[in-house]
Design a protein around this nucleic acid. Structure first.
Lengths: 94, 94
DNA sequence: AATCTATTTAGAAAATTTTCTAAATAGATT
DNA sequence: AATCTATTTAGAAAATTTTCTAAATAGATT
């Protein structure tokens, strides 16, 4: 909660790429890791960062942990950005 | 150019607050600085970070430098986020 | 031209983030 | 129950970011 956490999560290229991968379909931590030249521990760190920011959700199944994209926070961020752009479109004050 | 730079710029609370201030109207570096408990040098660093990310523009006038919000990059970011949310609204593939 | 005023640049210290290796956990398979 | 497989946690090193002080720049005023 809080835009700081969200923007910080989005500010790393690895994490943005993870989100892009998850856009297609949920993947396990291992499958996500294959796309990067990083250790499992590092991947785990990035996944937990994204999870803390509520940008992904996890689902445990068998031996695996599936991660999937969560879009609700993206919407909140878009609202924040939209508000910053402000009065440009629905200008009620003019 | 590049979302990394933009999200990184947006990930700092001081810089988000600067953008919120500039939403109302352009301000000089000094006026912006008054809102924070930071040295001028630090403010300058944040302003240059925002400028590199193209989130603000500067205009020199008399002894002052006015900074103002630039919204075009915000729109690009919103498009990126919107794309990530993806196929939810205009779902042509289903 | 000397000085003042607003702001930036340089360089260093402190704080935070990213990465790694090694070990731990925990469920699945034998 | 022993072992294997997928993933995380702990702790340290390296990289990056944020902040500061001191000095520099550059236009405005005297």
């Amino acid at each position: 909660m809080g835009f700081g956490e969200t923007f910080k999560a989005l500010s790393d290229p690895v994490r943005r790429e993870i989100l892009t991968l998850l856009k297609e379909s949920p993947l396990t931590a291992g499958e996500i890791g294959k796309h990067f030249n990083l250790t499992g521990a590092t991947m785990s760190y990035h996944l937990s960062t994204l999870k803390k920011a509520d940008l992904i959700a996890e689902r445990r199944e068998k031996n695996f942990i599936y991660y999937e994209l969560r879009v609700s926070v993206l919407e909140e961020v878009m609202l924040w950005l939209s508000d910053l752009k402000g009065e440009s479109k629905n200008d009620k004050t003019t």
